[in-house]
Design a protein around this nucleic acid. Sequence first.
DNA 1: CACATTGTTACCAG
DNA 2: ACTGGTAACAATGT
Length: 289
Amino acid sequence: MPELPEVETIKRDLQQKIVGRTILTVTPEWPGSIRCPSAEEFTRLLRGQKIEEVSRRGKYLLLRLSNERMLVIHLKMTGQLLVRGPDDAEDRFVRVRFKLDDGRELRFADLRKFGRLALYNSNMTQKGMVRETRAPYLEDFWKLGPEPLSADFTLEAFTKLIRSRSARMKSLLLNQFFLAGLGNIYADEALFKAGIHPLRKAESLTEEEIRKLYEAIKDVLVSAIGDRGTSTDNFRDTAGEPGFHQFHLYVYQRTGQPCSRCGTLIERMKLGGRSTHYCPKCQLKQEGQ
DNA sequence: CACATTGTTACCAG
DNA sequence: ACTGGTAACAATGT
């Protein structure tokens, strides 16, 4: 379940390992991973291109190429990007292979086959650019909410955002058009740290609660990036190594275990089809009780 | 073998 | 046009 910290970890790895390299060949072993253009066109357009820059927007990885195109990657649930040398063992579930000019190989592996690669013009982040391509999943890329770790994500901006909504907080935090990068793990963790019940409505939050949540979101993400991500299941970095943040979780997948703050047993509920973990004492449904 | 998993989109009602 | 809520989908391990 790569969310912002996991994608950030991979981004930093790739910046170190593959920026400046040229793609020699592309082998689609499961062409379904390639969203657009066709697998043949994708392969042809990438061959011989230099990887100029690696960046991240929300949960999307962006690889800018020398021909002014952008390779966009979404890992969805089980996608991995592995950088391997000629003597390294084969990886399971490799869907697309990129041979590089230093003898190494970038492998896109994906057990569930939900992850997607797409190739666009590099100005695709601008309004209207991607919609013209009619590419599923990525067409409203430019509509994504603010980056929680960027300088322009201020408390004032977050307060405005919250004040413009009425939905339940857990649902809002999962909405990528509200705020980019949080998924099920970090939405639960941030709400716990801020002491806010997942079912609370945005309009019911006090100034103090908004401030606490603002800090909690940033703290949780920074801490998880420091731990190189959460590997509760199959998240791996580009060397195939797990992260460490699963040892520092407060509520996610801790159902029935004592809350580290108050000892009450962590509970689990279904919200919009998603499992939601929370401490019933630290995160009271009615504010002020 | 039905179910669980989650990020995202489709669709509907308001 | 926008928001919020629910269902559906992707594919596979258990």
